[in-house]
Nucleic acid binder design. Structure first.
Lengths: 257, 257
DNA sequence: TTTGTTCGTTTGTCCGTACAATATGCCCGA
DNA sequence: TCGGGCATATTGTACGGACAAACGAACAAA
């Protein structure tokens, strides 16, 4: 097992297979629930009935139902049947980074394409923007971020890491996980806190060009700083997300007092 | 560990079955990875080898591996095998609880000035924007929001409440707390969840005029829906926050696993 | 009327089989 | 030497079967 083989094996995740029987069945059942054929609280046909109706094996039915359960659409009860739990799949905004979990999932689900790396010293303006000290050395990667099967970038980003962590920048393209997780893994740093700021901007022509968007178009500018357990800044990033491709979504659950 | 011993380790007691074979196998494989028996990047034994080693069916092995894949521990490749992807299951992160708190603090710290109230029936466009059903009656308040000692508004908002809660709109100016809290207090409704979406927009002339801002200037458009414990929508709002007056800040604290 | 038992139904676990899709290595020919 | 084809290995899909566990309804007994 050479490290080389390992790295290539970890490259792109296997492609999705939209044409399996169970995925087609899952999609059909999902649309039936969404269209109201089976109401929340009602039972959908049993596994045996679905087998007959679609002329597939029980295995195929169960795989489809597994997906619906995973989406939170249905709930199965032995002896009872399968009940509709929600009319629509769990709000899963692929573009959403309102929670840390979503931030990580977003990083894992999107493809990052490094345009350029360079070393630099933060001047006063950059230091202010990033929340770091002027005069410090940083390694910068300019990155485009894509959703699966999309050729238009969802974001352009600049990622800043400390020089001693600079090697992780070479792994961004292929890692399929957040950059901060790479720093954690390869440098034994623990990220204890992430701070994020969101403002609205209009794209200047150079940025718009890179993002294949219209100059002057609105975009979210999301800045993030990553701190270790001693509250030292480890990494920072700035991203531009054109607004018609990205919406920042958050869900607050309120516990009963 | 001899196969015999391992096999008996997988067998559940006949009367009490706290664990299935595949969950026991998943646990055992997880602990082998965590203990370093299989390094990140290396292959674990093939499905066939695991079948033989533990004297279980391929189904049982695959169910166990499904769990490991779900945990992000391994990655399977047809033709290659199953590779260790991480040494430990995905870290369980906690969302910073400050976010909802900050939402409430912001509401308490700002002054709201009601411009106009009216009753309306949600047409399709508004229903879509608010995440409500078309044809429903709502009471709408148009509001400007000011930071302390500021004469330029930080936001303009439209707040939508149910007709039976319409009286709270008269309290907005003076209450000094979130509108949803007013509904909770005066109508005994418990808000269980708030969903929020943030997008970037550019201000159209009428909005800009109201906000004393430049037409075309970037702004955050923050939409929120408030749900009760039965997941019924109780209230919705849309706010426009000119970007140079407001930045949406979030802090995520990460617990060690 | 209420409680307990039984039976039928349904999902969950686990077994086996077969073929498809993917990956890798080796061999042969140009 | 390099490229293509083939064979083998491995996971993924899909089929079938059997039994366990859980549930609800119906019926019987107290």
């Amino acid at each position: 097992m050479s490290p080389k083989l390992v790295n290539s094996a970890l490259e792109a995740p296997p492609a999705l297979r939209p044409s399996t029987r169970y995925s087609a069945l899952a999609r059909l059942l999902t649309s039936e629930i969404e269209s109201g054929r089976y109401k929340v609280g009602e039972k959908i046909p049993t596994e045996a009935e679905l087998q007959q109706r679609f002329d597939v094996s029980r295995y195929t039915v169960r795989e489809a139902l597994r997906e619906l359960k995973h989406q939170g659409l249905v709930l199965a009860r032995a002896g009872v049947g399968t009940l509709v739990r929600a009319r629509a799949p769990r709000t899963r905004f692929m573009q959403g980074v309102g929670t840390l979990q979503e931030l990580i999932q977003f990083a894992e689900a999107t493809r990052m394409c490094v345009l350029k790396c360079r070393e630099l010293i933060a001047d006063a303006a950059l230091a202010e923007r990033l929340g770091v000290k002027p005069g410090q050395q940083w390694h910068e990667a300019a990155v485009l971020r894509f959703l699966p099967n999309e050729s238009v970038p969802v974001a352009s980003m600049r990622i800043y890491v400390r020089p001693e962590h600079g090697d992780v920048l070479a792994r961004i393209d292929t890692a399929g996980q957040p950059v901060f997780s790479l720093i954690e893994r390869y440098h034994g740093v623990r990220i204890a806190e992430i701070r994020q700021q969101i403002v609205a901007v209009t794209l200047v022509p150079a940025e718009a060009r890179l993002l294949k968007a219209r100059a002057g178009a609105p975009a979210l500018e999301i800045g993030r700083q990553y701190f270790d357990a001693q509250d030292r800044i480890v990494m920072a990033s700035e991203g531009l997300y054109p607004s018609n491709r990205f919406s920042h979504n958050t869900k607050f659950r309120i516990q009963s007092a």
